[in-house]
Design a protein around this nucleic acid. Sequence first.
DNA 1: GAAAACGTGAGAATCTTTCGCATTGTTTTG
DNA 2: CAAAACAATGCGAAAGATTCTCACGTTTTC
Lengths: 138, 138
Amino acid sequence: MENQQIKRAGLKVTAPRVKILGILEKSRKRHLSAEDVYKQLLSQDEEVGLATVYRVLTQFESAGLVCRRNFEGGQSVFELNSGDHHDHLVCVKCGKVVEFVDTLIEERQSQIAADKGFRIQDHSLVIYGVCPGCQSQD
Amino acid sequence: MENQQIKRAGLKVTAPRVKILGILEKSRKRHLSAEDVYKQLLSQDEEVGLATVYRVLTQFESAGLVCRRNFEGGQSVFELNSGDHHDHLVCVKCGKVVEFVDTLIEERQSQIAADKGFRIQDHSLVIYGVCPGCQSQD
DNA sequence: GAAAACGTGAGAATCTTTCGCATTGTTTTG
DNA sequence: CAAAACAATGCGAAAGATTCTCACGTTTTC
């Protein structure tokens, strides 16, 4: 269960942390900004400050529990780290996120980095588009 | 010459605009943040406000002259739009940028978007790593 | 169960980016 | 080429996102 993940990260199990992790788990389809998480906490009548949300998210990130993404638009969004590296398809209208993994692309990336002499550390691939649901609303 | 590009964008040819475009042209190897551009202007004893730098960069972006990228880290960086869509290899140590185009990856992306029913609009692929020069400094 | 260490909320502070507005510069027109 | 017409600039203020500070509350340790 969630508490174990928090403990394993070397963090104490506190109400804000458990709540935030729970919110992230319930929102795998739509990655959340710190503000989004904060609003959900408020709507659940939780007394959590925005600063704490940022703190906890940053701690979770360091612990490898969540990933921070810098999509377009001012704020970062966070998603639960499912372990496997994956890329994103983001709907520019509704914000819906679809994750995918493509071995072929991963291989080409390693190849390209090697060609240029780079020692690869990480990568980020985001495809922006309009999802099926939003297309029908045009 | 540069002034033509500015005019074609429907903008008046002013000192700040010409200078900023010139700075971007000289820095194709390392994409610049608005702050970076501003500092270079100052070091050239140009009287340009930071607000103008942002304004001009945004205008250039709308005009398709430059592209704004949201790499990791708080600020956006800008690069001259060379017309062709390309992706990036960024050195996490020195900030050096290498651009590349890979048809195979582009094709896979279209394929993936199609599979998921998305109407693709844009995409962003960034590989983070350590460049050859920085590797030898370890 | 007291001390030490950690976690929290609230607001201040910081950083990046944008805005408002009086002033200045560029282009157009005659 | 001067004046009108309007766009562009610089400055400081403002906004939005994120982090920091600090006094207070909770957990852990022994």
